[in-house]
């Protein structure tokens, strides 16, 4: 009897433990050329910040926000770059890498033969993506403080916000990946991602758009992410950001559940 009861206890004890083992696998894989990909995720938003935020910012001058606060263009763009880098870091890990592992490396077929379940794989991969995304965010916030684009305290508050942004896009990316048929489908996603990057109140305040368009912009996830991070780094945050937080938490949960279900359906036929 003991031997039948015991494994049950062991295997039900640990969804978090099993999810962690999936993340741990990625640490082992780090030794491969994969770290090059990791570094690129930090420099890209930095280049945008310096070229557009600081460079173009010289031409644009200061901006007056709807609340009446006046900020330098660089301080306006920087939180958007932070949110966008959290987005692209999370998406890179949960779309390209996730899809490759699932479809071509057949990694998850092997993992699913162990006690690990689809949802736990999704959770583990997302957790790993977030670990990676958090490093970018922390580095970027440090640079923002260094350039005097925000205060140290606000940066500390903005950090968990940036992590949440990563979670939301990671969950979303993973769910989307389960619908992808081939690498070609990712081109579409890339375009959508770039459109979000350009038009989510990143470089221009959303208030500048015609009202219909503005409404469309305001329901997109990156807009909510930018709104949240900017609200914190520029104005110290307030109740207005609560909607953003709830929105991003909901996207994360939805993404994880959809990804777990779809993986179960795709891999456990």
């Amino acid at each position: 009897m003991v031997s039948i009861v015991l494994p049950r206890l062991i295997s039900f004890e640990g969804a978090p433990r099993r999810a962690a083992s999936v993340a741990e696998r990625n640490v082992a894989a780090l030794k491969s050329a994969y770290w090059v990909v990791l570094i690129s995720g930090f420099f890209e938003p930095m280049l945008y910040l310096l070229s557009i935020g600081v460079g173009v910012g010289e031409l644009v001058g200061d901006l007056t926000l709807p609340s009446g606060t006046v900020v330098s263009y660089a301080a306006f763009v920087a939180p958007a770059m932070l949110a966008a880098s959290a987005m692209s870091g999370a998406l890179a890990e949960t779309t390209f890498n996730f899809f490759g592992k699932m479809k071509y490396m057949k990694l998850y077929d092997g993992i699913l033969a162990t006690p690990v379940q689809p949802f736990e794989i999704a959770l583990g991969e997302l957790g790993w993506a977030m670990l990676r995304g958090s490093l970018y965010s922390a580095a970027f916030l440090a640079v923002m403080v260094g350039l005097d684009l925000t205060s140290g305290i606000r940066a500390l508050v903005a950090f968990p916000a940036a992590v949440l942004v990563g979670f939301a896009f990671g969950g979303l990316g993973m769910a989307l990946s389960t619908f992808m048929r081939s690498w070609q489908d990712f081109d579409l996603m890339g375009s959508a991602q770039f459109a979000l990057f350009l038009f989510s109140g990143t470089f221009v305040p959303a208030e500048a758009y015609p009202s219909v368009l503005r409404w469309v912009v305001e329901v997109t996830p990156l807009y909510r992410a930018v709104h949240l991070v900017r609200g914190i780094t520029v104005e110290g945050g307030g109740w207005g950001e609560l909607v953003d937080v709830l929105y991003l938490v909901a996207v994360t949960a939805l993404g994880l559940v959809v990804a777990g279900r779809r993986m179960g359906r795709l891999l456990c036929k």
Binding site: R8, I10, S11, G110, A113, T114, P115
Partner: peptide, 14 residues
């Protein structure tokens, strides 16, 4: 019902 518990005691060579 017991997928994870069973798989804990299986070895699979696909």
């Amino acid at each position: 019902r017991d997928g994870p518990a069973i798989r804990a005691r299986l070895g699979v060579c696909p």
